[in-house]
């Protein structure tokens, strides 16, 4: 039988605790290092953090 191995899904079997959570797939992980998307997130996170800093003073 041909196995279909998805590397990130193997961690679900490491421990019963780990099988009850969510693990990001290939697309979600690729977005973490996608420069265009991360630059957009960088701008958004900075704006949010500046607002939080402003609200905190």
């Amino acid at each position: 039988m041909e196995k279909k191995v998805v590397p990130e899904e193997l961690n679900f079997q490491r421990d019963p605790k780990m099988s009850l959570t969510m693990i990001p797939g290939k697309f979600a992980r690729s977005m973490r290092t996608c420069l265009i998307w991360q630059f957009i997130r960088f701008v958004i996170i900075n704006i949010k953090m500046i607002i939080v800093v402003g609200k905190s003073h």
Partner: peptide
């Protein structure tokens, strides 16, 4: 609106 978390390069740059 101001309690958030995410993983990626953006946070790393920050």
């Amino acid at each position: 609106d101001y309690t958030f978390g995410e993983i990626g390069l953006a946070g790393h740059w920050i």
